[in-house]
């Protein structure tokens, strides 16, 4: 049994492959911890109630809403945020596909979209259009970039080719 709180408590998170040390109350969401305490503002706060998808991050490779996840729950788990996708300044193929297919307008939902797509392709590297639609259904886009998003995910899947 491990007990934290109710006051601030020191925890270690693994974010984008690096250990991060933060002092947080147990009630602090992973989203607020990433944004406020770690300055990783790629994940966006839009609804704060799990109704939009803009705060999507990967926890142990699984796409979750970080606004409904507590930071203290994530000790010992690998967290991937949008800032962790590009390698050495080169955009991830999915990010490139989002740019090439104009799968965004204002871009506020985009980090969440890209990470949801990342989780989708990790599980299903060659999805059909219907599978892309089903897999991306947890991310709303108010600008209406959905057609571009579908194209971008399909094209990124094609580029990476069938995986073993």
């Amino acid at each position: 049994m491990i007990e934290h709180g109710p006051h601030k408590t020191a925890i270690t998170l693994e974010v984008n492959g690096l250990p991060q040390f933060v002092d947080v109350e147990p009630r602090r969401t992973l989203l607020d911890t990433l944004r406020i305490d770690l300055g990783l503002t790629g994940a966006k706060l839009v609804c704060n109630m799990g109704n939009c998808g803009a705060c999507t991050v990967l926890v142990d490779g699984v796409a979750v809403y970080s606004c409904l996840t507590l930071a203290v729950e994530c000790e010992g788990k690998a967290i991937t945020t949008i800032e962790g996708l590009a390698q050495d300044g080169v955009l991830h193929p999915l990010q490139q596909a989002f740019v090439q297919h104009d799968a965004l307008q204002c871009g506020f939902c985009t980090p969440g979209q890209v990470l949801a797509a990342h989780a989708l392709l990790a599980r299903n590297p060659q999805p059909t259009e219907a599978e892309v639609v089903a897999g991306m259904a947890g991310n709303l886009c108010r600008c209406g970039a959905y057609r571009g998003i579908i194209e971008a995910v399909l094209s990124a899947a094609q580029q990476t080719g069938p995986q073993q």
């Binding site: 994940a43 800032e83 204002c106 871009g107």
Partner: peptide, 9 residues
């Protein structure tokens, strides 16, 4: 586009 897809914007 790159700024917006990378979280850097």
């Amino acid at each position: 586009g790159a700024a917006r897809v990378s979280g850097e914007a």
